[in-house]
Design a protein around this nucleic acid. Structure first.
Length: 477
RNA sequence: CGGGGCGUAGCUCAGUCCGGCUAGAGCGCGCGGUUUGGGUCCGCGAGGCCGCCGGUUCAAGUCCGGCCGCCCCGACCA
């Protein structure tokens, strides 16, 4: 009965932090800015990971592993790259009790060391393309950290590819962006906007950065995945050259792309409510929880037997848990599993056993409204349908929310209002000055220049000059 | 790095202003009973270097100095 979480409307940041901990996703570690991902949170990450890994492999990528330590000199080889990352590097200067000859950076990302290796591996156009991904941890010494959203150490995948032509590399960059968007929309039920980053927001060392941007429950933007076209910047810095069909020496074209444990935070913030998490069925570590209800031993036996039959009917297709813990009331268990965001609950009591039925309760519809009684015969079918419906409804709800808080302002005042409420699509001339002015006056930034532009031209919402593109403005995480 | 807050039981905190004898509550945990269709109730119990170091004092959770850490808000970032 008692509310245990700060309501979202009262303090969104606090709601988020509390929910992540109370749903057992993560806990603070004894090191500043670091967190422990607990088994339940890790299981959620593993499902995201599997969704990505499957898609990468289906498109010809292979996993490999590169070292955690990167010689400092490597990072310094690409001018923009070092400038972008040096403020947040962790550096090892002592090893085995001795001062190191060359300090080692703990990888903040692996373009440099992978570039170094690619230079060794690539000789001929026959060696291309190289399509490698790695699952790894990285360290970035951030000022302010938040569980999952920005931690000093985080887990991610980073893909690094090398191609013979610019076209092919660009194709790869956009292919990956599509895979990210697919994971977000289909698995995480998270609507996203695919777009290009502005110069000021792009990855340090990239020619062009692409992103998927999602709207969180507080109407702020979360960059959920990025894919970079690196041109020949790293190829030149690391001398990655190959002989083409005409026996001419050329630099390769590279890409890099990443999605991180931040995505877990995104799932929490897109779907969660004041009762706790709401997990999309495709990603939920537990899709269905069975809560047996009994009064005496006789009932207990009958109910648990029915629960076992339900389990047998649903497993292994459905990830299911029977909560047969003693001494906890059903109501307590309901709240507990709601906090953890389990999409579907099956209640089985003596009455149900008697009548050959169970009660299904869907997480996205609180209380009695979300409950339906279904016969045990054909339960598997009903559960499968319900999970599909839930997955679709979660997406629809998030999409409606996104649309509701997206505006198309015509003037600067309108932009100010729209950006305070959510996302604003507006014409932008492309100048850094206009971009900076918006940031300064509204605290909103250009989240991306959407790939999906729609027709026509307009005038920059800031300076009034001709503008060829619309940008999406919003306050960001 | 700037601003604010906080370090006392596993958690949330009271006690600190105004020093005092055996350091408290609620939740959680263990045991027994009672309950179980939306966070049952009762009893008993375990659990503390009061963040760390130093100082003042007959006496420090409490006063003084220093240090460390964490959280929140801003500037940087997946």
């Amino acid at each position: 009965m008692a509310v245990k979480v700060t309501p979202r409307s009262e303090d969104y940041a606090r709601w988020y932090t509390e929910i992540v901990q109370k749903a057992d996703l993560a806990d603070y570690a004894p090191v500043r800015g670091c967190m422990v991902i607990k088994p339940y949170g890790y299981a959620l990450w593993e499902n995201i990971k599997e969704g990505l890994d499957r898609r990468f492999k289906a498109t010809g990528h292979a996993n490999a592993y590169f070292p955690l330590f990167i010689p400092m000199s490597f990072l310094e080889k690409e001018a923009e790259h070092v400038e972008g990352f040096s403020p947040e590097l962790a550096v090892v200067t002592v090893g085995g009790g001795k001062q190191l000859e060359e300090p080692l950076a703990v990888r903040p990302t692996s373009e440099t060391i992978i570039g170094h290796m690619y230079a060794k591996w690539i000789q001929s156009y026959r060696d291309l393309p190289v399509l490698i991904n790695q699952w790894a941890n990285v360290i970035r010494w951030e000022m302010r950290t938040r569980l999952f959203l920005r931690t000093t150490e985080f887990l991610w995948q980073e893909g690094h590819t090398a191609h013979a032509t610019a076209e092919e590399a660009m194709e790869e960059t956009l292919l990956i962006l599509d895979l990210y968007a697919e994971l977000a929309t289909e698995d995480a039920a998270m609507p996203v906007i695919k777009g290009r980053k502005s110069e000021s927001e792009k990855f340090a060392g990239a020619v062009t950065s692409y992103t998927i941007e999602a709207m969180m429950g507080d109407r702020r933007a979360l960059q959920a995945g990025t894919s970079h076209f690196l041109g020949q910047n790293f190829a030149r810095a690391f001398d990655i050259q190959f002989l083409d069909e005409n026996n001419e020496l050329q630099y390769v074209w590279t890409t890099s792309w990443g999605m991180s444990t931040r995505m877990v935070g995104g799932v929490v913030m897109v779907h969660g409510d004041d009762q706790g998490l709401i997990l999309p069925p495709r990603l939920a570590p537990i899709q269905v929880v069975v809560v047996p209800i009994w009064r005496d031993e006789e009932q207990k036996e009958a109910v648990l037997k029915a629960a076992a039959q339900v389990r047998a009917a649903l497993e292994p297709e459905v990830r299911l848990k029977v909560d047969d813990r003693e001494g906890l009331s059903p109501g307590w268990k309901f709240n507990d599993w709601e906090m953890r965001g389990v999409p579907l609950r099956i209640e089985i009591g003596p009455k149900d056993v008697e009548q050959g039925q169970v009660v299904l309760a869907r997480r996205d519809r609180p209380g009695r409204e979300g409950k339906t009684t279904v016969p045990v015969t054909g339960l598997a079918e009903a559960v499968r349908n319900m999970l599909d419906t839930l997955q679709a409804d979660l997406y629809r709800r998030a999409e409606a929310f996104l649309k509701e808080h997206t505006a198309y302002p015509e003037d600067f005042e309108g932009l100010r209002e729209a950006a305070a409420d959510g996302f604003a699509y507006a014409w932008w001339c492309g100048s850094a000055e206009c971009e900076a002015k918006v940031k300064e006056e509204t605290s909103a930034t250009i989240r991306c220049i959407p790939l999906d532009q729609g027709p026509g031209k307009g005038r920059c919402i800031v300076c009034g000059e001709e503008a060829a593109e619309r940008a999406v403005f919003g306050r960001a995480y």
